[in-house]
């Protein structure tokens, strides 16, 4: 099995992965090979959303894809959301303020997903509950759009409040 040496662009940094087994998922590359352990492995099959990262601004499940496929793409993880001076992203602040988590394991995925979701929403992308024009975010639109991120502690209400507050800013 040929190994591969290639580069990933993560949070603006270029990371060289040397002699990588092609089986390594994007999630494992980010976590084990780049040391960015914010993104989490909850199911490794795209069913929980804990591994959500942003690629070219769009949210994806990093567990369900090979790292090799993302060579050269612009990848952003939870570690890349805060400002350079360490001040938190509005969503990060809002999650703390609204207690949008308990154990915190799904949280990086929730927040990355929310970043992507707000971008989709602002671009006018529809959801399954959209009937014609995209409706207001609060309520069914937000809930449908965030349903790809499971939270077993049950912080869904706080997550909603946090996202709505950040979206209003």
């Amino acid at each position: 099995m040929p190994l591969h040496t290639f580069q990933l662009q993560i949070n603006g940094d270029t990371r060289t992965l040397s002699n990588l087994d092609p089986r390594v998922s994007l999630l494992d590359a980010i976590r084990d090979h780049c040391g960015l352990t914010g993104a989490k492995k909850g199911c490794n099959q795209g069913a929980c959303g804990a591994c959500t990262v942003l690629v070219d601004g769009e949210r994806i499940n990093s567990c369900l894809t090979l790292a090799l496929q993302y060579e050269g793409r612009d990848i952003r993880t939870i570690e890349g959301l805060a400002e350079a001076d360490g001040s938190l992203h509005p969503l990060q602040k809002a999650f703390v303020e609204h207690d949008g988590f308990q154990c915190g394991f799904c949280t990086p995925g929730q927040i990355c997903s929310a970043v992507g979701m707000l971008a989709e929403y602002k671009a006018g992308a529809p959801s399954a509950v959209t009937d014609g024009e995209v409706g207001e975010l609060a309520g069914a639109e937000l809930q449908e759009r965030m349903s790809g991120n499971l939270c077993r502690c049950g912080a869904y209400v706080g997550i909603r409040e946090a996202i709505l507050e950040a979206a209003a800013q």
Binding site: G46, R59, N61, G116, E120, P126, R145, G148
Partner: peptide
């Protein structure tokens, strides 16, 4: 077609 797609999977999966 749009509606059917949006009823499948999650936003993350649909982005992939």
């Amino acid at each position: 077609l749009s509606s059917a797609i949006l009823h499948g999977a999650s936003a993350q999966l649909r982005n992939m």
